[in-house]
């Protein structure tokens, strides 16, 4: 009865390389938002010091507003069903959203020229499934407070090792 951890060790290595690559190009991810399937904000964090901090309630309304816009966008499609907003691009930032099959939304606010947001969002989803869903003290649909998840996200998005 050996429990293997090989797969996860590889994933960790890849995360670090990826975070390193991001760091070199200075294509920062400013913040990350996670919405549950009802559109409630369950996680928000900024990864660049220069981002202006808002009140806790402001983040929650921003999250719900995005959820609403996403729903409207998917209904506005003239050609059948649409999966909703995937990216919003402006001169100053780019918002990229990844919706899971369970209806959760992960979206990042980043530098407009960031090259591989799809991959990063997928990696964030993987971290969520590992360090949040397998944590017995996390209640589904509630806000995420897991030290290990925070640590792994910091490694991925900032390229820091907070050991």
């Amino acid at each position: 009865m050996i429990i293997t951890s090989c797969r996860n060790i590889n994933v960790d290595d890849r995360d670090e390389n990826l975070a390193f690559a991001v760091n070199v190009k200075v294509m920062a991810i400013y913040s990350l938002y996670i919405l549950n399937k009802a559109g409630t904000l369950i996680f928000q964090n900024d990864y660049v010091g220069s981002v202006e901090k808002l009140s806790h309630n402001a983040y929650i309304s921003l999250g719900s507003m995005f959820h609403g816009l996403h729903a409207i966008a998917s209904n506005l499609s003239p050609t059948g069903s649409s999966s909703g907003i995937e990216t919003i691009e402006t001169e100053a930032f780019k918002l990229q959203c990844f919706q899971t099959h369970t209806g959760m939304k992960f979206y990042t606010i980043s530098d407009p020229n960031h090259p591989n947001l799809d991959e990063i969002l997928h990696n964030i989803y993987e971290l969520y499934t590992d360090y949040v869903l397998k944590n017995p003290f996390y209640e589904l649909e509630m806000s995420i407070r897991c030290d290990l998840f925070d640590d792994k996200l910091n490694r991925l998005l900032k390229g820091t090792t907070a050991d």
């Binding site: 050996i2 429990i3 293997t4 797969r7 996860n8 397998k134 017995p136 003290f137």
Partner: peptide, 22 residues
Amino acid sequence: GKTEINLSSFAFLFSEIIQYSQ
């Protein structure tokens, strides 16, 4: 010989054991 178990399966089972005990 060696029999290996997927870490994820174990993690979910262990997580359920803890929640059940809690």
